[in-house]
Computed example of a mutant assay.
Amino acid sequence: MGRVFAWVAFLEAITWAGLLLGMWLKYGPQATESVVWLFGRLHGVAFLVYAVVAVVAAVRLRWPWWATLLAVLAAVPPLVTLPLEWVYRRRGLLADPAQRVPVPR
Score class of each variant (00 low, 15 high):
W16I: 00
V76N: 10
V101D: 05
A75T: 14
V56C: 04
E12R: 05
P78K: 05
R105Q: 12
P102V: 04
L69S: 11
A9N: 14
W63R: 14
T32Y: 05
L20E: 04
Q99K: 14
L69Y: 05
L21V: 13
A67S: 14
G40H: 08
L69M: 11
G28S: 08
V4N: 06
K26F: 04
Y27M: 03
V55L: 13
P29S: 09
V45W: 12
V4P: 01
W37C: 00
G28Q: 07
L42D: 09
V59H: 14
G92N: 08
A67G: 15
V36F: 05
V101P: 03
M23R: 12
P29R: 09
R100H: 10
A75E: 10
L48Q: 04
P104C: 07
W66M: 15
W37Y: 10
F47G: 02
D96K: 09
A58T: 09
D96W: 09
T15A: 00
V52N: 03
M1H: 06
L11F: 15
G18I: 02
E12L: 10
G92C: 08
L21K: 02
Y27H: 14
V80D: 04
A51K: 00
T81K: 03
W63D: 14
L94N: 03
T15N: 04
A6H: 11
P77H: 13
G18S: 10
R60W: 10
A67T: 12
A6M: 13
Q30T: 09
K26Q: 10
V35Q: 02
F10R: 15
R91N: 00
I14H: 00
A75H: 11
I14E: 00
P97I: 06
W16Y: 07
G22H: 02
W37T: 11
V52S: 04
V55A: 13
Q99L: 15
W7K: 00
A67F: 10
P78L: 14
A13H: 00
G40R: 11
P78F: 14
L79R: 09
V76L: 15
L61G: 13
R62T: 15
L73W: 11
G44P: 04
L73M: 15
L84R: 01
L20G: 06
E85Q: 04
A75W: 06
G92V: 07
A98S: 12
Y50G: 02
Y50K: 03
L69P: 03
A98I: 08
Y88I: 00
A95D: 10
V36C: 08
V56W: 14
I14L: 15
L84H: 01
V55Q: 01
V36Y: 04
P102L: 05
V45R: 00
V87R: 11
V55T: 12
A6R: 15
L73E: 12
L73K: 12
V56E: 08
P29W: 08
R60H: 15
V80K: 06
R91D: 04
T15I: 00
T15W: 01
G2V: 06
F47R: 01
